[in-house]
């Protein structure tokens, strides 16, 4: 038995050495890229916003023949994206891996749940923006976000806010940013309840929570039917797709603040320059295609292309903004 194991090990060693010998040359110059499939990673389970974004990108790139190699989508869920971020650290310098991220990339680092941040990736481009929305049930006493803020100013724990992300991540923070701008003190005392995947809208419909902080496109069906009332959207101006155009922005209601749920693509840390250049060029082309336009329209996304340098600057600035809010609720870990 022992000998068998030994023999198998030897075989393994031989295979490994051969792999090194044959593969060694190809990795050095890499004049032609891409020649092998590129893994497109959604750092969450199938069905969420990240999953939808990366699948759309892969589909558009393949349909328009901009990328000649297969782009298989892989889901690496967990830790609000932190699990995949840790995985990307093990792939330093790889050229065959791209992940989609959005505000939680910064938030999970600032709130201490991940030691890694956007600085431990290679930002390639920002692609779209989705905005947040604050919605209530149709029989709610609130008809504007200002009323909610008034109540919160009197007693910060009088309104129960629900959302899908964990405390200290997106749905929570987007509401706090607005509350802070509206002049609510004691952000810490605002009640925020995190719900399991997908059950948030059901909770606000059933009257178990007062207000749901969510993505604008996540509750479109219920807004259309009038079961939910949109109090505010978080963009600089209204998104014009169907029913969403009837929801006023926070700005219109005197809260001078914007929250963007930006989504962009990121390579692993130290992604080789030829790969970075290739993707910057390709993504710039992709956002000009009619296929991309159509996909954005259907999903209710606002196009928001930023090339890598601009994106990096945007990330630096956004990171500071989030820091301020997290600091105020005492969740900043650093």
């Amino acid at each position: 038995m022992k000998q068998t194991v030994k023999a198998v090990f030897l075989l393994g060693l031989v295979c490994l050495t051969t792999a090194f010998l044959f593969g060694g040359g190809a990795g050095e110059k890499a004049p032609k890229y891409p020649t092998k499939p590129i893994d497109m990673i959604a750092p969450a389970g199938a069905g969420g916003g990240w999953d939808l974004t990366i699948r759309t990108v892969a589909k558009v790139l393949t349909d328009t023949k901009l990328v000649p190699v297969p782009l298989p989508v892989t889901n690496k869920p967990g830790g609000g994206g932190g699990v995949n971020l840790a995985y990307m650290q093990t792939k330093k310098g790889a050229d065959n891996l791209i992940a989609v991220y959005s505000p939680p990339l910064l938030l999970i680092n600032l709130n201490g749940s991940s030691p890694y941040s956007y600085k431990n990736t290679t930002p390639l481009a920002a692609l779209i923006t989705d905005y947040g929305a604050f919605v209530v049930a149709k029989n709610s006493k609130y008809t504007s976000i200002a009323q909610v803020m008034e109540d919160l100013k009197k007693d910060p724990s009088s309104v129960v806010i629900g959302g899908t992300s964990a405390v200290g991540s997106m749905d929570h923070i987007q509401f706090l940013i607005m509350a802070r701008a509206a002049g609510v003190k004691d952000l810490k005392k605002i009640k925020y309840v995190s719900f399991q995947e997908g059950s948030g809208p059901a909770q606000v419909l059933g009257g178990h929570i007062h207000l749901l902080s969510t993505g604008l496109s996540d509750v479109r069906g219920l807004l259309q039917s009038g079961d939910l009332r949109g109090l505010a959207q978080t963009g600089p101006e209204r998104v014009t797709t169907d029913v969403l155009k009837d929801i006023p922005t926070c700005k219109e209601q005197g809260i001078n603040e914007v929250f963007r749920n930006w989504r962009g693509l990121f390579g692993p840390p130290e992604m080789p320059e030829y790969a970075v250049n290739y993707w910057r060029k390709t993504l710039a082309e992709m956002v000009k295609t009619p296929e991309w336009d159509a996909a954005c329209k259907q999903n209710g996304w606002t196009k928001n292309y930023m090339d890598a340098p601009d994106f990096m600057a945007f990330l630096d600035k956004t990171n500071e903004d989030y820091k301020a809010v997290l600091g105020e609720i005492g969740m900043l870990k650093q």
């Binding site: 389970g45 199938a46 069905g47 969420g48 999953d51 995947e197 997908g198 059950s199 809208p201 059901a202 419909l205 509750v219 479109r220 069906g221 219920l222 079961d227």
Partner: peptide
């Protein structure tokens, strides 16, 4: 009926 996906499968 509500547009609420209650599981990963229905979300996809």
């Amino acid at each position: 009926t509500l547009g609420i996906p209650g599981s990963g499968t229905t979300a996809v």
